[in-house]
Nucleic acid binder design. Structure first.
Lengths: 196, 196, 196, 196
DNA sequence: CATGAATGAGAATTCATTCAT
DNA sequence: AATGAATGAATTCTCATTCAT
């Protein structure tokens, strides 16, 4: 089991990083939020970058695990796709802070950002694999599965994030919105927008 | 006509901001890139924030204008949607740096980020209006046009951005990819992923 | 006659310098207050220091002239002392901004501050001369006339300045206070504080 | 007991502030004079303003304490007044740098300057109270005790300050001057300048 | 393991002054 | 005479990181 303090620091760090982004986040604030001395953070993490990376790595790992778990409940690619959409939206709603960081800290030239995109790619590959399975099995008809996976990732992610900001502070409405958002993505995937 | 120096500073600022993001960008670098003294930037812009905001405002304004121009060439909502997808992807490809900033600097609690999301919302409304026109005319069948607009925005944006990073440094391949990406988004919009 | 613009700049400069003190005063603000371009100030004055010095020199010159004029109306040293006290207090009340600068910018190691103290000394000598005349004529009994002159200068100056700040924004009360202040200084000079 | 470094910084700050005044004083110089890194100052004080305010507050606090201690040795208002004059002049001579700052940084619109005047007022009230006690006991005859207190403060302060500048660099003469100055102020208070 | 005082390399911003027009 | 855009040296303040205790 991970050292207790590490967990406390982790909790605090998500809050602070999500509040302000990587650059604006201050180690002082993280220390204060965690209720430990600044030196203690440095005892457990080599640097701010390392703390952040560890954090994001765990975060996106959780997303991937959660998605995998939901997918594995089904064997049919179409049902798996449904499950993935559900999982993605739920996870983003339950991890709003991580969701913000996921998009805002993914683009850039820093090594940490590159590492980060590698993990996102891993998640997109997960989607892509479902698509490829569906094509294989004849259930799905997709020309560019990789691009399609990334488009699906973008549609679902931005949709939730957009909603998070427009419903800022209205926790209740968010839950109701979850259905609307799932419906929207499903409609996009499984129906043509065209009437008939 | 805008003052010449302001334009030079603008050009330099896009480069530098896109290279490093708002926080990492240094006014020194912008000044150097622009070939002016640091003070000159401050003579024209009150602060780094203001420079950035002016920049992003113009950038997203260009995106909106470009999209509107493309849309206005058609009167049929479905053709307009096609045009919008085309415009969006082309604009992102031709303004890669802006595209990165568009997504990475939109989420946060800073006033500038809020202002920025307001402008993005304006663009999403543009999409939403096409969808509503299509519903009205009976051409489209969409339950939640606002959510759908934001999903479309997300799909197209992340798709291009993802491609920008995976093709980093391969300018030629990017152009070819444009078609693949447009096809992907069109497929998502106008076909079901399901085989028949 | 002095160039018209110089006068305009002078007027503006007193306001701004008094508002913020030498260091905090900005040439930009003076230019704006004067309604001229910043370059124009530099056309007429070599530097901020020179503008300030010219200003203070004129200001203290006015004080000295005003005091001399009032003194010269009397030939008796005691009446002259009365006249001086009256003039001093009146001048400080009518030139509040100059009064503030007079005390706050007089102490320091800068050449301008030294020049400034030289002029104040000139004023103190004026008081001292009245005292010496009074000693000579047997009207006054003072052991250290120079020190006494400087003490009188301090008493009257600080008294008015203290009142200026305590009555900030109450123009009317200031006028009434003038009498109280004159009485106070006269009492200090011509009576013992001791009862009988 | 205050942290050792804080004291060192305090010592250095008085020197530097008095040398150049608030605005011209550089944090770099204070740091160098204190033999600490610039960051260390900011670790202990939020800003230059706060450091200065803390400094002046302590300084004028010392003056008040010193005066009170001297006054409390006597019960007769007249003797107390003598003691106060003695204390004031001694304190100004022994704290020349503070004395300069006391007068030059008291006038202005900055919050710190306002705070500062509040403390000076506290000192003037101390004088005023002695005067009121004397009136009460019938020892003194004063019409406007508050104004008189402020005039006394001004007379003694400016007298010493004027002397400090005229004897710059002649430490020995200063001590001798102390008597002359005390005599002058006492004469002002307890005798009429008029001969008989 | 934990602490928090101390550090110092930056970075944003300011503003007197210059000078081409 | 007057202008105001441009400059760049100077200065405050920040904050990740270190290290002695």
């Amino acid at each position: 089991m991970r050292h207790e303090k590490v967990d406390i620091i982790f909790q605090a760090a998500v809050q602070v990083f999500a509040e302000s982004g990587f650059d604006q986040a201050k180690m002082d604030d993280i220390a204060q939020a965690a209720g430990v001395a600044k030196g203690t953070i440095y005892y457990h993490f080599k640097s701010k970058e390392e703390l952040f990376s560890a954090l994001m790595d765990e975060g996106i790992g959780n997303l991937i695990d959660y998605a995998k778990r939901n997918i594995s409940l089904h064997s049919n690619p179409i049902e798996q796709l449904h499950a993935l959409v559900h999982a993605h939206i739920q996870f983003f709603i339950e991890n709003k802070k991580l969701a913000k960081l996921l998009l805002s800290e993914a683009f850039g030239t820093k090594e940490r950002q590159h590492q980060f995109r590698v993990r996102i790619l891993e998640y997109i590959r997960l989607i892509e694999n479902i698509l490829r399975d569906g094509i294989q099995s004849g259930d799905l008809s997709i020309v560019h599965p990789h691009e399609m996976a990334s488009a699906i990732f973008g549609a679902a992610s931005i949709l939730v994030l957009h909603k998070i900001y427009s419903l800022e502070g209205q926790e209740k409405e968010m839950e109701e919105s979850a259905n609307v958002m799932e419906e929207t993505v499903r409609h996009l995937l499984f129906n043509s927008l065209m009437n008939k």
